[in-house]
Nucleic acid binder design. Structure first.
Lengths: 333, 333
DNA sequence: CTGAAAGCGCTTACAG
DNA sequence: CTGAAAGCGCTTACAG
């Protein structure tokens, strides 16, 4: 009737509940015989540890939050988020820790998130650092000593206080722009990301580094990481400089928008204008032609985020990890 | 240094910890003076209740799972899921209960989900009933007495054992097919959903009911709810019966695929062939022309799911709720 | 290696 | 209306 407790297991196994707890927690101060007896008793009673009791006794929650500081809309439209949520959930599950998705898009939600997290529901938080929108919350979380690791280099002055793991944005941009140059492109424009995002900064810098003295501010337009934003940016670019023959967009969504706008303007991609993106997410293979882009290693980013967070929770110092990207050549450039 | 407990609040307020607990839980057996003193003490100490202690004492978790039995890929591509996850998370947060997203696509994940849930991490489960893929898990959950409510009528023989809330699929289909008839369409085909899904069954039935004696099996093709599947189904339809002048797709994604395939085949939408969908999700406004479709009231579905689940958790019987749909006329039909 | 016991921080009959 | 106390189910020094 009632769910079995550690005590029930103990009587069946003929030991004390302390011993049951020890085998449960993999301590090795237990004799082989006792261990065998306890394991059998666990099976025969159908015992499962009560997480609330364990959490109370150990004062930890065995759970972390994945915090979304963007508007909720964005989340489910952004394949990067999806990959990260999927990847980290998996990596966490492998360690038997659960994860809660927390949406904290507006101030009210952020307040709620803050009280939820600081109440001790989670041991740490995973963050996708896309803009500065979540900064106030991050600051408060930090003040409350909550372990945090972000995907993407922190941009709000949090360097060294939170863990981070990011793709090598600058180098990824360098490699793709070099590729465009090698293909003989002469007027290479870029659609940059928002300047308050790590990708918005570093990818532009990579572009600029390759072009060096040939860098022309007129060929830089800022986008908002959306398909529509990419299309709009492209039109601006075309108005400024009709002779562009290549565009490097700071993410795949904008690259898709650029392709659509280009085609609407009667330009062939890649014949007239080559287009390259960044991310290699679902957008990359949904456009015609498919995108030449820079791949972010999301599975590895996810597992590293989890590893670093666990270290932080364990009391270690925050580390900042950068992972290599790779160039994926498809039809668009 | 150490986080304040109920006891700290009690000494500051000059009462016993039992009284603090009573004001915390909104019991009214507490004098106004005591209440005021406690509330002040809570503020001055910065007290927050420890959820693990509370959960242990009350033996409940104040948390529910949103279970995804589809492959993980599907989730983040499906705007219906996104709307449901968003809506239920919100409704749950309003009641101060948290939610965990659990992906249980393959057998290994289902086993893990089972043990997570039956360990008592959550008080109940929210489910999006899209196919029969999750049936074995649902069955085991039911055996373990876990309260469940699904979106969509249960199809695996779970009627009456789990709560459910769904849009009125049959009536929604009736209204849109009647609309097509009223527009003067004569050869109305349908791309049905998979026959092991509630929508796959009821929407087809609504279509059939309107056509009655004019129903022609040759005009029915089964799709898989994806854009590509919709396009493929449309091509099959066109091969069978080039004279179709309208298509009712069982969801928006397939409707978009149908439009694309139609256009690729040189047919104008809606002039040559009218196309209607079902859902009114993001797909509906991303196609050209935009979709005429049946709106599912996702916000209401979400909040009803939560309400019914809370009832179930509270010991009441499972209820099955059907919510009305509405026809949304845009450019495609 | 193992048991008895204290403690984690709450809730809730039970008296009063 | 309120306090003292038991209980929720674990973990973990502390002895032995």
């Amino acid at each position: 009737m009632k769910r079995p407790t550690i005590r029930d297991v103990a009587v069946v196994a003929g030991v004390s509940s302390g011993t049951v707890s020890r085998v449960l927690n993999g301590k090795n101060w237990v004799s082989p015989e006792a261990r065998v007896a306890v394991e059998a008793a666990i099976r025969s009673t159908g015992y499962r540890v009560n997480p609330h009791a364990r959490n109370l006794a150990m004062s930890k929650s065995n759970s972390v939050a994945f915090l979304l500081t963007e508007t909720q809309q964005v989340l489910f439209e952004d394949p990067n988020f999806a990959a990260l949520v999927r990847g980290t959930t998996q990596a966490l599950a492998d360690r038997d820790v659960s994860s809660v998705l927390i949406m904290a898009g507006d101030a009210a939600e952020q307040a709620r998130a803050m009280s939820y997290i600081s109440a001790g529901h989670v041991d740490g938080v995973l963050l996708a650092f896309t803009s500065s929108g979540g900064n106030p919350l991050v600051r408060r979380l930090l003040d409350a000593q909550v372990p945090i690791v972000s995907c993407g280099m922190p941009v709000g002055g949090f360097e060294g206080r939170i863990g981070s793991v990011s793709a090598d944005d600058a180098h990824g941009a360098v490699s793709v722009v070099q590729y465009l140059v090698a293909q003989g492109r002469r007027r290479i424009a870029t659609i940059a990301g928002p300047p308050d995002t790590p990708g918005g900064i570093a990818r532009l810098e990579g572009y600029r580094r390759v072009l060096a003295s040939r860098f022309d501010p007129a060929l830089v337009v800022e986008g908002d990481y959306t398909v529509a934003g990419g299309a709009a940016a492209l039109r601006t670019l075309l108005a400024r400089e009709p002779a562009i023959d290549a565009v490097f967009a700071a993410n795949d969504a904008m690259a898709v928008g650029a392709i659509e706008a280009l085609q609407a303007a009667g330009r062939q991609v890649p014949t007239d204008v080559a287009v390259a993106g960044f991310d290699d997410n679902d957008f990359a293979t949904r456009s015609t032609p498919e995108l030449t882009t820079v791949r972010q290693p999301f599975p590895r980013i996810s597992s590293e985020m989890v590893r670093v967070l666990m270290e932080l929770i364990g009391g270690e110092e925050p580390s900042a990890i950068t992972l290599p990207t790779s160039l994926v050549v498809r039809g668009s450039a």
